[in-house]
Simulated scan of single mutants.
Amino acid sequence: MSLLEDRYRHVLRLLPASYRAGREEEMVAAFLEGAGGLTDRDNPRPRWSEIASVAALSVRVRLAGTPAVPRYHAWGRAVRLAALLGLFFHATLSCLWFAGFLNTYALRDLLGIDVPGALGTTMPLDAGSAERLLDIVWGFTCLFGLAAFAALTRGRPAAAKVLAVLALLSVCGATLRLLYVLGPFAFETITTHILVFGPPVLALFAGFHRDARPPRRPAWVAALPVAAGLALYAGLSALSVVTDSSVDDTGAWAWPWMDEPGLALLALLAAAAYAATRPRTPGGRDAALPLALALLTLPLAAARSMVFLHLSGPPVLGVTYTVQLGALLLCGVAMLVMAARAMPAREPVQGPEAEVFRP
């Protein structure tokens, strides 16, 4: 065995063993043919493009878009569902943020209407200032999250990927814009936002590959975050009337549930309750939903734990954060157990269902 062939076989270990069993010789031969007759004296190595193609194939095989291998298909459906649920949450918050933006610059600034308790009622910035322009630009970039979810539900994953990245950059950019206000809390805030909104973007890129195109859903599905965002805006505005924004003993129990990780936690717990109580299908329980929720639990728990870096305030605040973190961990374990029980058995890839490799 030549040095180059040995190195190609080492790269191919990225693929599942069942897949390599039927395709390894064919793939090694194709790689060696394209190498141009290099010898061991040349110290040949696989090209980075070849390594990237094998890595991409490994992701496509393990997150299958067809049910030929049920276990890989279950993983693929779970990752795609995690992307869809995460983008739905981001889209809902996009509508929430945009409603607060309209309340500040349309109702309060232009019409002079002040809605008691409504979110986004901070004083508009000075007319003509660069800060005001940045604030208005950010207000409209909030809609990238809604656009990403709409593109995915309408069967356009490529556009959804671009819009999801822009939405994530918009969230992080809003934190950087307030860097002089947040001070030492800026790192904590940016990290929290990345942990909450970043994993669905990664799941979107990994799960929706060329062999797993999303179905085209009705237009009303794309509008669901608008209704959810408006309902959430009304609920949070009403809750802010009865709680103290200074986070004292009278309202400290509520505020940990009203930030992004707190809202994500409530959404995840509701989805987990649905997964645990929904009736079984004729084929048994489906592993995709509990596995998707388990995948989203770990980064959300990390995001919630960030508050303990600079925790201050009344004791009830720390107790509430601890309860939230415990609920997340219990939920994640429960979803993992459900997914493990429903996961299909391992199967080897055989015959024509294995994809033909093209380096």
Rank of each mutant, 00 (worst) to 15 (best):
R280A: 15
G284I: 14
L263G: 12
R278H: 12
A292F: 00
L263C: 07
V247K: 08
P282Q: 07
G283D: 13
G284H: 13
G262I: 06
A264T: 05
G251R: 05
L263H: 10
E260S: 15
P290Q: 09
A252H: 01
R278E: 10
L263R: 15
A267R: 04
D248K: 07
D286L: 09
A275N: 08
A252M: 08
M258P: 01
T281C: 05
D249K: 09
G284N: 09
D286P: 00
W257H: 09
W255G: 00
A252D: 01
M258Q: 12
A271D: 02
P256M: 04
L269C: 13
D248M: 08
A272D: 07
T250Y: 15
M258V: 03
L289D: 00
R278S: 11
W257K: 03
P290R: 03
W255R: 06
A267Q: 05
L265Q: 12
R278Q: 10
A272P: 03
D259H: 11
A273V: 07
W257T: 02
P261F: 10
P261K: 14
A276S: 11
P282G: 12
R285E: 14
A267N: 04
A275D: 09
A252N: 01
W257S: 03
D248Y: 06
L268C: 04
A288V: 06
T281Y: 14
P279V: 08
A287H: 03
P279N: 08
P279D: 09
G251K: 05
L269P: 00
A288L: 09
R285A: 15
A264K: 10
Y274A: 14
A273H: 03
T277A: 13
W257P: 01
D286K: 10
G284C: 12
L266G: 07
R278K: 14
A270F: 04
P256D: 01
A275S: 15
W255S: 03
L268D: 05
L269K: 00
A287D: 04
L268M: 05
T277K: 13
G251M: 08
A271Y: 00
L269G: 00
L263V: 10
W253Y: 15
P261Y: 11
L268T: 03
A292Y: 02
A264M: 13
A276W: 09
T281F: 15
W253I: 08
P279R: 09
A264I: 04
A267M: 07
G251L: 11
A270E: 03
E260K: 03
A270R: 04
P279A: 09
L289Y: 03
L289Q: 00
P279Q: 06
A272I: 05
L266S: 08
T281P: 01
R280P: 13
E260D: 15
D259L: 06
L269W: 01
G283C: 10
R280K: 15
T277N: 11
T277S: 13
V247T: 08
W257V: 01
R278W: 11
R285Q: 07
D249F: 03
D249G: 05
L291N: 02
P279E: 08
A287I: 04
A254R: 05
P279S: 09
